[in-house]
Design a protein around this nucleic acid. Structure first.
Lengths: 188, 188
DNA sequence: TAGTATCAGGAACACCTGTTCCGCTTGACC
DNA sequence: GGTCAAGCGGAACAGGTGTTCCTGATACTA
């Protein structure tokens, strides 16, 4: 849509990055209800500075989420021994991310993305990546063929929400996902 | 702890019930972030009236949750064809409740209850009811023997949170829980 | 019916939030 | 070094929240 923005002053560019880093820290601590003031303090910056770089709180937080999601999406294409573990490894990785930073769950919300959200693009990319892995795993016979995206996303975002809220330990996550993924495998 | 309170004036008792009913409606609509003012308006009552009956917002909402949970717990003892469906029917009932009213998920939070919460009692009762059904189902061979309470509660509260946030349809809930419960069954 | 403790209503208070605005500072260019 | 748009900080604003408090109404009792 918009081409490359005009070059910014050096200090402005530096501040923009500091704000994004601070927002990531604060979001991981306080979740999506984190306040703009908390971000400003963490970044050591005034409120006006934040609003110079991001028109609104939502825009700032969306920018952070988009950043994180792009990093996560890069892992979807990593080679794996077989399509089954490819899918389950990636799903597990998403839940880990949700527990650490408290932003992942919102990407999977609902059947379709809300049109107004600034995360629609990465949200779609994320769903497409999952769908690709799901199809491959099903074709390999590693996942039951009647499992569709809606229920997969529903269960996945549930796991993300719970892991985020209750801060699942590594062991708990392993045991819970073991059960969940087992339900996704074909009946024998 | 406290014995029966002294008798209240008739209008006061009536108002207390109206407030509880209104709070249940508002909580189902707005979730745990509902405002006291919204409850007052729904009940057709002043703010002071609410604070006369409940010392704090948290106390009021806890009272509502305790009410709902007691009703839910009554269903745990309903007879069922076999221990397996007994467990799964009750778990499904909890998720339905979470989607309708937006309060159920908090009951299952964390491994143990927070000591300060006013819902500690029903929260414990709920966990005990689930544990009883789980043990019975495992003894009947309907549920894998290595499934423990922490991961069951973790997965259940995840389903509640997602059903609550994304308003799962009946069909989606059926398909999602079908997968989840299948993972809880013994490997064949 | 009169008296009184109980109760209701809602303005007021204190605090938090996102956002705007404006005087001051500073980096970039000639 | 001088100029000035770009950028910065934070007070101020508007709106929301939970809670308190005080005036006036009301249900019970004698």
């Amino acid at each position: 849509m918009t081409g490359e923005a005009r070059p910014r002053r050096a200090d402005a560019q530096r501040n923009r990055e500091r704000i994004l880093e601070a927002a990531e820290v604060v979001l991981a601590r306080d979740g999506m209800s984190a306040s703009v003031r908390a971000v400003a303090q963490e970044a050591g910056v005034g409120l006006g500075t934040i609003y110079r770089h991001f028109p609104t709180q939502e825009a700032l937080y969306h920018a952070v989420i988009v950043d994180r999601t792009r990093r996560l999406l890069a892992e979807a294409d990593r080679p794996s021994p077989d399509p089954g573990t490819g899918l389950f490894t990636f799903l597990g990785r998403i839940v880990v991310d949700a527990a650490q930073k408290k932003t992942a769950a919102d990407l999977l919300a609902g059947a379709g993305a809300d049109p107004k959200a600034g995360t629609a693009d990465v949200s779609r990319d994320m769903r497409q990546a999952i769908e690709r892995l799901l199809t491959a795993a099903q074709e390999a016979g590693a996942v039951r063929p009647d499992l569709r995206m809606p229920e997969l996303l529903a269960l996945l975002s549930g796991a993300c929400l719970a892991a985020e809220r209750d801060q699942w330990s590594d062991g708990l996550r392993r045991r819970a996902l073991d059960v969940l993924f087992d339900g996704m495998r074909p009946r024998r």
